[in-house]
Computed example of a mutant assay.
Amino acid sequence: MTTAIVLSLPIAFGLALAAMPMVMLSTVLITTRPARVSYAFVGGWVGGLIAAGAVVLTVVDVIALAAEPTWWVGALKLTLGVLLVVLAVRKWRARPRNGQDPTLPRWMAAAQTMTEARALRLGFLLAAANPKNLALVAAGATVIADATPRVHEQVIALIVFAVVASLTVGAPAVVRVALADSADRTLDAAGTWMTRHNAAIMAAVLLVLGVALIGNGAATL
């Protein structure tokens, strides 16, 4: 179990860094809506990561019962690595140029009036259905499944993975509790910086993780 956790942590940290749009949404929610709305979004995000990871673990475990996993686990890592590199290139090419304002998703604009139930659903869907996030979750779950065949150890490792991957998304709520009245100014400044550099940060994170998975997968084949 320890090996599964340690090997999946770099991907979890990468997902935490790549979740910049979700961090921005969490920041908007905690500064403009009741605190419970932001907490619902974070809860949905964590739940989405765990649900997506559980599906991947189940599929990998079923396949492992029927065949020796050595070659296909390496092939899966290699494929996910290539996908992450492609996503990194697309993110870098779509970054705003000098003088251009970054384009924000439509659901960011809806944050001002978002309810608790909608925030929960949106957090879940963004974690479990977004291609970039799903690729990273699949990579982490595959690493966990490859590290240990014991289901209870896989579950614990997956929960740790999801919590670590959610650290940045949950950070605005922690900042609000810690800084109280001065939190809005700090969060606004952080949100502005993340908005401006979001594409470059995500491209760099995806590229590093993609190259690491390609190397790991190639070594396994």
Rank of each mutant, 00 (worst) to 15 (best):
M1K: 10
M1N: 08
T2Y: 07
I5P: 04
L7N: 05
L7D: 05
L9T: 11
L9D: 01
G14C: 08
G14I: 05
M22D: 11
V23N: 00
S26M: 07
S26Y: 03
T27W: 10
I30T: 15
R33E: 08
S38L: 03
Y39H: 11
A40F: 06
A40T: 03
W45V: 00
V46M: 06
G47R: 11
G48M: 08
A51E: 08
G53V: 06
G53T: 06
V56H: 11
V56L: 13
L57E: 08
L57S: 12
T58G: 09
A64F: 12
A64T: 15
L65I: 09
L65H: 15
A67C: 03
A67R: 14
E68W: 09
P69E: 09
P69Y: 09
T70N: 08
V73N: 09
V73E: 11
A75C: 10
T79A: 15
T79C: 13
V82K: 08
V86Y: 15
V86S: 12
A88E: 07
K91C: 05
W92S: 06
P96W: 04
D101G: 02
T103N: 02
P105G: 11
A109T: 02
M114N: 08
T115H: 05
T115R: 12
E116S: 14
E116M: 14
E116N: 07
A117I: 06
R118W: 07
L122D: 12
F124I: 06
L125T: 13
N130V: 06
N130D: 15
P131G: 13
L136N: 09
L136H: 11
V137P: 07
A139P: 03
G140N: 04
A141F: 11
V143I: 15
A145M: 04
A147I: 04
P149K: 11
H152P: 03
H152A: 14
E153L: 13
V155Q: 09
V155H: 08
V155P: 05
L158Y: 11
L158W: 10
I159G: 02
F161S: 07
A162K: 01
V164E: 01
V164Y: 01
A165N: 01
S166W: 00
T168M: 14
V169K: 02
G170L: 00
A171K: 02
P172K: 14
P172N: 15
A173F: 10
V174Q: 05
V174W: 14
D181C: 04
D181W: 08
S182Q: 14
S182L: 07
S182G: 12
D184K: 13
R185V: 11
T186Q: 13
D188K: 12
A190F: 05
A190W: 07
T192P: 01
T192F: 01
W193P: 01
T195R: 03
T195V: 03
A199L: 02
I201Y: 04
I201R: 03
M202S: 12
V205F: 05
L206Y: 13
L206G: 05
V208M: 13
L209W: 03
L209E: 13
G215Q: 12
G215M: 10
N216W: 13
N216L: 13
A218P: 06
A219L: 13
A219H: 12
T220G: 04
L221G: 12
